[in-house]
Design a protein around this nucleic acid. Structure first.
Lengths: 168, 168
DNA sequence: TAAAGCGTTCAATCTTGACTGAACGAACAA
DNA sequence: TTGTTCGTTCAGTCAAGATTGAACGCTTTA
């Protein structure tokens, strides 16, 4: 693999780290995800630690985080007691759920406040209603995107997944 | 105003702080926004600092942040050399732009990587294309929401803004 | 049995960014 | 002029959370 290509990949992995970080997740989680996007194959636990020059403790924590989010899956190889990880079937839609749920929580806060505030605080009620409506449309729209994306993932067209491409 | 009401408001202000924080913005910015949502009226610079028990330096920094985002506006009162702040006309859609731009940047990273990577890395190209497409639909959808919301704000129906409600 | 490799956990460290206090210049008042 | 009230800036502090090293329990191998 060309030197230039290596550089591009390293850069991408790093940027994915920053992107996930901007999403409130640890940077290392993003780097792991980045690595999995470019090189498809399952990665071994130790291998991840080495490639990212990061402690095994971090790999343990962050793979579990990504696993809990449903973004990656833990697998195993026959005759090998190491854990392996690879992208989940619909990794990206899962990423969305985080944002989606945050919005939902925000709307709940607004709704609860609105209900708890006296009706005669007209100005406050009005502004809260507007904020509520805003989150409402936002959430509805997000729901649509997630559904569409999930459906797309279930279509036979993009179901292919090469488990062994590049021994990673 | 009832004691219970005060408590609800304080709670709301605090939660708005956390909501904005989850969005990568300082907590105090969220508290300022929360205060403005419940009490509509313009707030004086010093008043904000006192009500939130926060340094004037923080108010300076965070009002400017919100101002730059287009979420609040700085105004002035005749015969008073203090600065005053109030919600912008379409405050919530502005909040969105942050997320929107982050997504845009993310898609650019993916696109650039895809272009820089050799075409014969079929697996990588395919996965990057999928991620690219994902951000694409996401961005398109967001654009729609923002447009819809902007249009709504421009309709005469919700144009009312009570500048003087509650001397705050 | 012992030794090595595995993943997890936890206390400690390190990093990042929010927040503050103090100093400052500008505008106004006396 | 001096003194006060503004808002801003900046160096320093502080807090939150990411990351690590070490210890641990478990499983496999010899």
């Amino acid at each position: 693999m060309a030197d230039e290509t290596e550089k591009v990949i390293a850069e991408f992995v790093e940027r994915m780290g920053l992107i996930l970080q901007a999403d409130g997740k640890p940077r290392i989680a993003g780097r792991i995800l980045g690595l999995m996007v470019v090189h498809g194959g399952p990665f071994g636990f130790t291998e991840l630690a080495e490639r990212l020059s990061v402690s095994r403790a971090s790999i343990s924590t962050n793979t579990r985080l990504l696993e809990d989010l449903g973004i990656i899956e833990r697998t195993s190889m026959p005759g090998d007691r190491q854990d392996y990880f690879r992208l989940s079937p619909q990794p990206y839609a899962r990423l969305l759920r985080g944002i989606f749920e945050r919005m939902h929580r925000a709307r709940d806060v607004v709704g609860a406040t609105r209900a708890a505030l006296p009706k005669d605080m007209a100005g406050a009620q009005e502004r809260l209603a507007e904020l509520d409506a805003f989150y409402e449309t936002l959430i509805n729209n997000f729901e649509t995107v997630i559904e569409v994306w999930d459906a797309k993932g279930k279509s036979p067209g993009s179901q292919k997944r090469e488990l062994t491409e590049q021994p990673a």
